[in-house]
């Protein structure tokens, strides 16, 4: 019961940046359990940086990030790794280990963190690959896969430990519209079948409108969140012109005139 009320991710007063340059400041948002949550924003606004802070790769300048109630910022190294194992991350290019076959890639977390027998591991790997429509590709090396397949293989690896929380960094970048749509359907399926919470960093509006329950929009100028809510609602009713412009693909013209005005 309590699980329902507790947000999967809670970001409090987060300020992030590189080497003294603040990229985003005073961020506050929550991601509820079972939600598909998109982080949007123009290029260079710090979406990916924010994601890397949430998954614990970077340390914020100030503020706190709670994953399922545990602070990934304040945790010591051991605890942080324990938190990290609770979620799966799919990187832009899949980030498959090029020296291992697809099956070995998916098996790696299982080998590291479970006591499954090799046979059980093989079965799990096969199941995960089937889930992402890559059944039979286990013996392929990452270099032999197409971009979409590599991303799906990366997703299979992220799913290996059955996490309840999934992060995606630009899942549709570099994919053709059909493959991209397939991937969207896959995400929906994951959410519906396993009740997973999914956080996506993207700027593909088609995907956003198709699958996102809620979005936040980041802005480079104000270095903060300029919108937070369901995408369709924001597109139609947001008081912020920038948000509406972004969501209606009028961005270039509008931000251009804004910059002049």
């Amino acid at each position: 019961m309590e699980k329902k009320t507790r947000p999967e991710i809670e970001v409090r007063n987060l300020t992030i940046g590189y080497g003294g340059n603040i990229v985003l400041k005073d961020l506050n948002f929550q991601v509820a359990s079972g939600e598909i949550f998109c982080i949007l924003g123009g290029s260079g606004c710090g979406k990916s940086t924010l994601l890397k802070h949430i998954i614990g790769l970077y340390e914020p300048i100030s503020g706190d990030i709670l994953i399922q109630g545990d602070s990934i910022v304040q945790a010591d190294e051991h605890h942080r790794r324990e938190i990290m194992r609770r979620f799966g991350v799919t990187y832009q290019g899949g980030a498959l280990f090029s020296s291992m076959s697809v099956a070995e890639n998916v098996a790696l977390p299982l080998e590291e963190y479970t006591r499954l027998t090799p046979k059980e591991i093989a079965e799990t790997v096969e199941a995960k690959l089937r889930l992402v429509d890559l059944a039979g590709f286990g013996d392929y090396m990452p270099a032999e896969l197409s971009g979409g397949m590599a991303k799906r293989a990366g997703l299979a690896r992220a799913l290996a430990l059955n996490p309840k929380l999934l992060f995606f960094d630009e899942p549709s970048a570099g994919l053709d519209p059909i493959t991209s749509a397939e991937l969207d359907r896959l995400l929906m399926r994951l959410r519906d079948r396993f009740g997973a919470t999914i956080v996506i960093v993207t700027h593909e509006l088609d995907s956003v409108f198709a699958i996102a329950d809620r979005i936040i929009m980041l802005d480079k100028q104000t270095r903060s969140i300029i919108a937070n809510g369901p995408p369709a609602l924001l597109r139609d009713t947001s008081p912020n012109e920038k948000v509406r412009a972004f969501l209606t693909r009028d961005g270039l013209k509008m931000t251009g005139s804004e910059a002049r005005g």
């Binding site: 998954i55 790769l57 194992r85 980030a95």
Partner: peptide, 14 residues
């Protein structure tokens, strides 16, 4: 460069 290091890290592997 390929984020494989980040991937390792988020798998909880050093």
């Amino acid at each position: 460069l390929d984020e494989q290091i980040s991937a390792l890290e988020t798998m909880g592997i050093r």
